[in-house]
Design a protein around this nucleic acid. Structure first.
Lengths: 326, 326
DNA sequence: CTTGATACG
DNA sequence: CGTAGCAAG
């Protein structure tokens, strides 16, 4: 297919994303008629239509064996909470109305939070963690309708706990962890650090799991397989799709954790949660799946659905929502 | 008058502008009816109407003794030329169509100039000067329909010639100098430097004048008298209205140069060329007269008009236009 | 391309 | 408040 024929020039460290935008040709309709087929199946060239199609699939509110969903969690990398709020994203949140809302890349301190967020009556229990050093960088939040038994911040490793990346809430039957995994950076300047993080973070998850099942959500900053990003060929040296990062996520799965979306939709293509703002990638659905709900294997019987809300605007990531019957 | 009753708290170094915005009350209409009087005279409380009124005065295109204007010069502090261009300011320029257009605070290098500016067919002779060190800071330009005899940059004093502040064009009968005078800064951190500048710059003007009459235009970064800014009481310690800066301008006038606008309109109040973006000062006409056409006394018989184009948008300064019969 | 911090006004 | 630069994604 023509869309995969990217220029073969050596990828400069920072050129991957740029190449992705510029080399993306307008989808060529075949003479026999391209686009979405009558049965709803989708052809390669029509990735944008594919996204719209799976967005409209109804949420499954039952487990495989018929238990009703009683826990709804949404995760969203907001790319700057203050700008995100100005884009009326809270309206979407009110409509979605998850029991728990996890936010990443809030890029502000608790003190800088807009009142509209702090004062949401639906979410009286709010937990925030911000970067200690760099202002306006990283930061995560967790907003709950019900009060957790306990909440902790970071992963208990000094080196990793200064950038507001992890909040863990303990509930009766599970731990909920939300994370904003460190980006390896342009030119992979932080890949070494990321590898350390991946090891330590997995150890943290296993430690939790030794006590209770774990639900992990957030921006894992990795597209696991080729199916998880549009331009897999040109991004093998890009942050988020290096072998090291993919291996890091592979290690999580190898330890028995489940990528809930891929578990339910093993063949779903064009299913992304992030699109760079550059080059109109979102309208062309040139994206990456970087946001996940990862579950302890023992939670699988409780899983109802794992959805990508790709129509929700307000960030360069879209939200994802998990339905569980606990 | 109530509008002058500013809070009497000690002015902190940086509070002057903020106070100006916040303390400006809505104009109170008198019971007998405020606003513009029938004869076109203007009451104190209606400063905004006043601005509109003098904007609409027709340009005088004759000297006092009846010579016709044959030279039109416009000066505009554009506060970032690239942003200014995006606000369609070039349309205003085309309509105004001065023979010479002087621009201050272009905040870009010659290389960064938008093509729309470089390629204006009406202004084939363009001269630019940018800050040597700080990117996106200061910088002036002069665009001419006719080619000057000579053009020089700076004032010949090393200390003052690294920030793109002065362009001098020599014509047959006069020198035209455009300047962006250094701001004394918040907390007057640069007032000492400014005093040095004022001395050296006046010496430069006198040197030119010893050869030919001088037309000086630009952002002089000083409001000369109380009539030249709205909140004169609260700004006595603010950059642009300190005794030192006012004295600096006084020295220019004492050496025989003429403030053309004040010469023609000695009693015109509410006549400003700058309004801080903060606190809606422009719609309330809470402003400063910082931009001037200053003339060698010998040019007075050639003066037709000196106007403030206060309706022209695109910057926190408005343009000013001079008409001369040379 | 977009966010947010900083310098400067 | 608004224009620039910058770092980061």
């Amino acid at each position: 297919w023509a869309v995969w024929k990217m220029p073969k020039r050596a990828l400069k460290e920072e050129a991957a994303e740029k190449g992705e935008q510029q080399a993306e040709p307008a989808p060529k309709k075949t003479k026999r008629g391209g686009g979405k087929a009558a049965d709803g199946a989708v052809k390669d060239g029509d990735a944008a239509a594919a996204a719209a199609a799976f967005e409209d699939t109804p949420d499954k509110l039952l487990t495989e064996d018929g238990k009703k969903s009683d826990l709804k969690i949404t995760s969203w990398n907001v790319d700057g909470l203050r700008a995100w709020v100005k884009k009326n994203s809270l309206e979407w949140v009110s409509t979605e109305s998850p029991d728990i809302l996890c936010l990443q890349e809030i890029k502000c301190t608790e003190k800088q939070l807009p009142a509209e967020v702090k004062d949401m009556p639906e979410y009286p229990h709010q937990y925030w963690s911000s970067s200690q050093e760099k202002e306006g960088y990283s930061g995560v939040g967790m907003l709950c309708k019900m009060k957790p038994l306990d909440v902790t911040f970071g992963i208990g490793v000094e080196e990793h706990d200064n950038e507001g990346r992890v909040i863990t809430a303990e509930f009766n039957k599970y731990f909920l962890v939300t994370v904003y995994v460190p980006n390896s950076g342009r030119g992979l300047v932080r890949l070494d650090y990321r590898k350390t993080w991946d090891v330590d973070f997995l150890a943290y998850l296993k430690g939790l799991e030794s006590k209770k099942p774990v639900i992990l959500c957030g921006d894992l900053n990795v597209a696991h397989q080729e199916i998880d990003l549009k331009n897999y060929k040109t991004n093998k040296k890009s942050a988020g799709f290096t072998v090291e990062e993919r291996q890091g996520f592979g290690n999580v799965l190898a330890d028995g954790f489940i990528d809930s979306y891929r578990h339910l939709y093993p063949d779903a293509r064009h299913a992304y949660t992030f699109w760079t703002y550059m080059g109109n990638c979102r309208v062309k659905n040139v994206g990456w799946r970087l946001d996940y709900f990862v579950l302890s294997k023992t939670l699988l019987p409780h899983l109802c659905d794992s959805k990508i809300r790709c129509k929700a605007l307000g960030s360069d990531h879209c939200p994802i929502t998990l339905f569980m019957a606990m």
